[in-house]
């Protein structure tokens, strides 16, 4: 226990400081303000892998590490689409995941946002379309924002989430 506490104390706070002149930090401030304006509470995100190579999942995991402090920004990942405001979908959509993706989308309450993560989700990427792949996410469900990159880093994923929220009008209260 003592070692645990010593480790916590010696590491200190890994979260990066809030607002500042850095572009990344401005993004964080803007995002938090936008989440509050649009939702008035935390943004609930459900990640769905519709056929990716798992590379984008690594960066979505990284987004959850202490450097990015997303819970501090008001973003939380949830276990069910029924609790989600926004779906983060990686792809391409394999034909075997097509029905599961449609059902996940249908289970997400309106109004819902969809952010496609990674080159494959945006365009089909290296895998393209074929007998087993439907290619980009928008071939299967409506997409609000597509974030390219192979894989896109956590800051770009955050930018994508902000961009999706920017298209939404603030909640009436």
């Amino acid at each position: 226990m003592l070692k645990t506490l010593r480790q916590i104390a010696s590491v200190g706070i890994a979260s990066e400081p809030a607002p500042g002149p850095d572009e990344t930090l401005r993004l964080r401030e803007a995002l938090q303000a936008r989440i509050l304006a649009v939702l008035g509470r935390a943004l609930c995100v459900r990640a769905v892998d519709a056929g990716s190579c798992n590379g984008c999942e690594l960066e979505i995991h990284a987004l959850n590490n202490p450097f990015y402090n997303i819970e501090g920004l008001g973003i939380r990942f949830v276990a069910s689409p029924r609790h989600a405001d926004l779906l983060l979908v990686t792809g391409p959509v394999s034909r075997h995941m097509e029905i599961a993706l449609r059902r996940t989308y249908e289970a997400t309450p309106d109004p819902k946002l969809v952010v496609a993560i990674g080159d494959c989700a945006c365009s089909g990427g290296m895998f393209g379309e074929g007998y087993a792949s439907r290619g980009r996410i928008s071939h299967v469900i409506p997409v609000d924002v597509a974030v390219p990159g192979c894989p896109p880093d956590p800051t770009r994923i955050l930018t994508g989430i902000l961009t999706a929220l920017a298209g939404r009008s603030p909640s009436p209260g």
């Binding site: 056929g51 995941m97 895998f127 074929g130």
Partner: peptide
């Protein structure tokens, strides 16, 4: 398994 089969070998 097989849900993320996307035809890599044919690709």
């Amino acid at each position: 398994l097989g849900y993320v089969h996307k035809g890599i070998e044919r690709r």
